[in-house]
């Protein structure tokens, strides 16, 4: 295993120039805060949902390692414009990929596919999943009719 397996150029690009990184989102529908006390990662994720039930925009902000920040950046692009259910399914595809399974939606994951190698670094899997799990939580929070939710991981 080399550093290049972990830090693919696509990942570094997202880290250096993150997409949809913002501390606020106009007319946000849901804001979730996810933190991992073990590594100190913090993530604020905000979503706005269109009247037709698709994800209009996803923005994130926070502090964390390159893997967590880059993965969140790639995620915001991959899920924008998708129906909520579809975005949840894509998040599940990504989650399974992080646990070593072959992704079924390579094209839909877009740059997210660059994180496949992270699965070989067990301690970094949670970093890659942070943004995607925050998205899943945000959508589920929206479907419950709530506007905010906070999650602290304990492992």
């Amino acid at each position: 295993m080399s550093m290049e397996d972990l830090y693919q150029e696509i990942i570094l690009d997202h880290y250096r120039k993150p997409h949809n990184r913002a501390p606020t989102l106009d007319d946000e529908d849901v804001h979730v805060h996810h933190s991992n006390p073990l590594c100190g990662d913090e993530m604020d994720l905000r979503i706005r949902v269109d009247d037709d039930g698709t994800l209009d925009q996803v923005v994130f902000d926070g502090e964390g390692c390159s893997i967590s920040q880059a993965s969140a950046s790639a995620m915001t692009i991959a899920v924008a414009g998708r129906e909520l259910k579809d975005a949840l399914e894509l998040a599940e595809d990504f989650r399974l990929m992080m646990h070593g399974e072959e992704p079924t939606r390579l094209d839909d994951l877009q740059d997210g596919i660059a994180f496949q190698g992270v699965a070989r670094f067990p301690v970094r899997v949670k970093c890659a999943l942070l943004g995607w799990m925050a998205l899943r939580d945000a959508i589920e929070t929206y479907e419950r009719g709530a506007s905010a939710h906070s999650v602290t991981y304990d492992d």
């Binding site: 972990l6 073990l38 590594c39 100190g40 390159s66 970094r124």
Partner: peptide, 28 residues
């Protein structure tokens, strides 16, 4: 450079350091 990235990078050089909150979160 986030501490976790630094730790992973140094591991590639055979250098073992600790990264994180060191079980001292009030101090962090």
């Amino acid at each position: 450079v986030h501490p976790h990235d630094l730790g992973a990078m140094l591991d590639g050089y055979g250098v073992c350091i600790r990264v994180g909150h060191h079980c001292a979160k009030p101090l962090m």
